[in-house]
Structures are given as structure tokens and as C-alpha cells.
Simulated scan of single mutants.
Amino acid sequence: MKATLGGVVGFIIIGALLAWLVWQMGVRSQRPRKLPNLDAPDVSTEWGPVTFMSHGSKVEGWLLQPAAHAESKEGKLPIIVIAHGWGSNRTRVLRYAHSLYQAGFAVFMYDARSHGDSDSIHAPSALMFRDDVMVAVEVARHLPGIDAQRIAVLGHSLGGFGALLALESGMDVKAVVTDSMPVHFETMLKSELRRKKLPVFPLAYVIPMIWLIRSGISRAQFKAANIPLILEKYAGRAEAGLTPVLMVHSNGDEFISVKELRELKEQLPEGIIDTLFVSTSGHSTSEQEPAFWERVIPFLQEQVVNAVGKKEACGTRLQATRENI
């Protein structure tokens, strides 16, 4: 009898230790790298620091201005908000900046919470990236010299994931460009587990529950973070009142497989998203291929720089339609 009781107690202790170990792994996987930024961005244009608050935490950013001659006729600039990915920071997405400000865009980049020089929070998540990019867009809208009606977001990896989630939450931008973005949250989690040298099985099936508990995210909120469904509802032609979305991925990305975007393209009805597949190696190299900028800059010029004219033309057509009814 005593031996049986001792075995039960031992089993309970071992089970408790395993549960604690898995919980600690979940905590570790939810703690992104916090990489320091350069003291000043290595850019060939004017820049300045920008500090703002996101959900009670301080967020640090940079505003880069193009050359004065690139300003619009109205004296206000279109702006691109750049959202970095998990474990990254604004310095690491400076690789996008030069081509953008050379094309006449102001560029606003920031460290998401728990990244770079921004304040840390208890439990970062994909929804945190969504909330931070929404706040950053509103901050950009009120920056001096910026045209509040001509804003777009360029999001890398989980930054792009958060930007698309933000469309469902009401983020008002003229366009979204994603680069090397996971289509499913589970993909990012599995990739992060591999990077931290943690076993994918069974952690990839247990840790999401730990993340949800620590982040205070309900199961309903988690299920609603469905990129294909969000794109079907909110992405498309600006003339239809939707947000144009261009999704870029490299065939040589070994961290987030290009397979997901190819499957998404086949899954969605034609005309919902634009896609571009490049051939660089790595998760953060797409912009190194000339085809990236040959597609991204004209897309942003069409959707953002010409946004006011398109809006006015659309309004004129609607007014003419009403008068003919």
C-alpha cells in the first residue's frame, strides 16, 4: 500500500516538474531578442527621433525625410511606416529606407514593444504587433510636414502579419506591403522554437495555449487572427473601398517558407492581393533583388502618392452616379 502511494506521489511530482518545464519553455519562447539600435541611423538624408506611447509603454522611433526637392506640390509628404519583425528592431529594417526616401517618401520606423529601445511588456504577441502598428500609423498621421491622407505600411515578417491584422481593426492606410510574412501564427512559432533550439514537438501544440494565457488573449481572438479571411474581407482595389496589398516573399527564405504565400495566392479569389516572388537567400534579403524595388516603388506611388487624386476622381464618379439616379 505504501509502495503504491509512493508511486502515485512520485508520478504527481514528475508531472508537476514536466508541466513547470514546459511552462518555462513557453515563457522563453515568448521573450524576443532585444537588439540595441545604432545611436543614429546610417542614412544620407535628414532624420530625427520620435517617441510615442503605445498602450502605456514608451516606443522609440526615427522619422526620415527625403530631400527637400522631393516634397509634394502641397508641401506635405506621403509617408511609409515600417514595421519590423519578431526579435528585430528599427536599425535592421533601415535596409528599406534609402530606396523609399530617394523615391520621395518620408519614412517612419519604430521599435515594437519589447524590442530595441522601446519598453518591454510581460507577454509580447502577434496582437501586440497589430496594436503597435496601428498606434504608429496614427502618430505618423500627425507628424509635421506629413500628408495625413497618404500613408502606407511596409511590414517585414511578423510586422507584416500585424499590419494585416490591423486592417480588420480599422487601420486606415492607402496600401500595405508585406515582406517574408508568415501566413499562419503557428508558422512563426515553430520557426522561433527552432531558432531557440527548443523541440517543435510537442511544444508547438502546447505553447500557443501558454502564450494566450500570459497575453490575456481569448481563444476567440486567436481564431479571429485568420489572415486569409481578413484579406478576403479587407484587401483589394482602392476604388472598391478596400486596401491594396502587395505580398513579397523570397524563394530562398529558409526561416519562413515561401510555400505559404504560394498556397495563399491559390486559395484567395483573383484580384484580392498582388504578389511578388524573388530569388534571394535568407529571411531578410528580399530588397536586395532589383525586382523588389521595381515592383514596390511603382505600387506605392500608384496607391499612396496618387491617392488624393484617385479619391477625388472616385468621389466625382459617385456624385455623377447619384445625379443620374
Rank of each mutant, 00 (worst) to 15 (best):
residue 4 T to H: 07
residue 11 F to E: 01
residue 13 I to A: 14
residue 25 M to S: 07
residue 32 P to L: 14
residue 32 P to Q: 13
residue 40 A to H: 11
residue 48 G to C: 07
residue 55 H to D: 15
residue 57 S to F: 01
residue 58 K to H: 08
residue 65 Q to S: 11
residue 78 P to F: 01
residue 78 P to H: 04
residue 85 G to M: 02
residue 85 G to P: 00
residue 87 G to T: 13
residue 94 L to H: 02
residue 96 Y to C: 05
residue 107 V to M: 03
residue 113 R to G: 02
residue 116 G to A: 08
residue 121 I to D: 13
residue 126 A to H: 09
residue 142 H to M: 08
residue 149 Q to R: 12
residue 149 Q to L: 07
residue 151 I to G: 00
residue 155 G to V: 01
residue 161 F to K: 02
residue 161 F to D: 02
residue 174 K to Y: 03
residue 196 K to Q: 15
residue 196 K to N: 10
residue 196 K to A: 09
residue 196 K to E: 13
residue 197 K to L: 06
residue 206 V to E: 09
residue 208 P to G: 06
residue 210 I to Q: 05
residue 215 S to K: 09
residue 219 R to P: 03
residue 221 Q to Y: 03
residue 223 K to L: 10
residue 225 A to E: 01
residue 227 I to H: 06
residue 229 L to D: 14
residue 229 L to K: 14
residue 233 K to I: 06
residue 239 E to V: 14
residue 244 P to G: 03
residue 244 P to S: 04
residue 252 G to T: 11
residue 255 F to G: 05
residue 256 I to V: 15
residue 259 K to W: 12
residue 261 L to H: 02
residue 271 G to A: 09
residue 275 T to L: 12
residue 283 H to Y: 08
residue 284 S to A: 12
residue 290 P to I: 10
residue 291 A to N: 10
residue 292 F to M: 04
residue 299 F to P: 00
residue 306 N to A: 11
residue 308 V to M: 06
residue 309 G to I: 13
residue 325 I to K: 10
